[in-house]
Amino acid sequence: MLRQVRPAIVMMIAMTVITGLIYPLGMTGIAQLLFPYQANGSLIHRNGRIVGSALIGQNFTSARYFHGRPSATAEPDSKDPSKTIPVPYAADNSSGSNLGPTSKALIARVKKDAAQLQVENPSVPVPVDLVTTSASGLDPDITPAGAYFQVPRVAKARGLPEEEVHQLVEAATKGRLLGIFGEPSVNVLKLNLALDKLGSK
């Protein structure tokens, strides 16, 4: 029985060295060589500053920008670290709302958000992705329906013709991958960057 002790200890060390150090560090080296942009987080630079990541959603509140989905992320309260305060799109603390389908809190939140969105575009029903929080709290995308819904507000705030903003959304829409996988989506950060470019022309 005790003859299994030495293999147990040495094997654990050997496996840690192979799978826990050589493998991840080697992968880091190869990844940095072959795919440096992706390996470093698909970061987007504008005027020499990092404005975010193409894969990570960020918080937009201004009427001049397209908004992402509601986010349930939070950060510890600086006054009382045992509590948390809501901080949407906290990319160092991903989380969903974890509210169940019969939760009063969920239904009240959706009711309030839907009523607010209804005001800016009363002609169509509110696409469900605009009033539901994503699983990660960092969803970089909205649905094409969710983007078109916001066109009138953005166009008005920027003084642009709706048609032009509409075209921008169309260009930013990504279909299903290989025509099969996933769902059509619009990356909010990329769409807003395109919008800013349009404004500066």
Partner: peptide, 13 residues
Amino acid sequence: LQAGGNMEGKEVR
């Protein structure tokens, strides 16, 4: 233009 359904706690993609 959208998947619809119960999108609470789900990702658009």
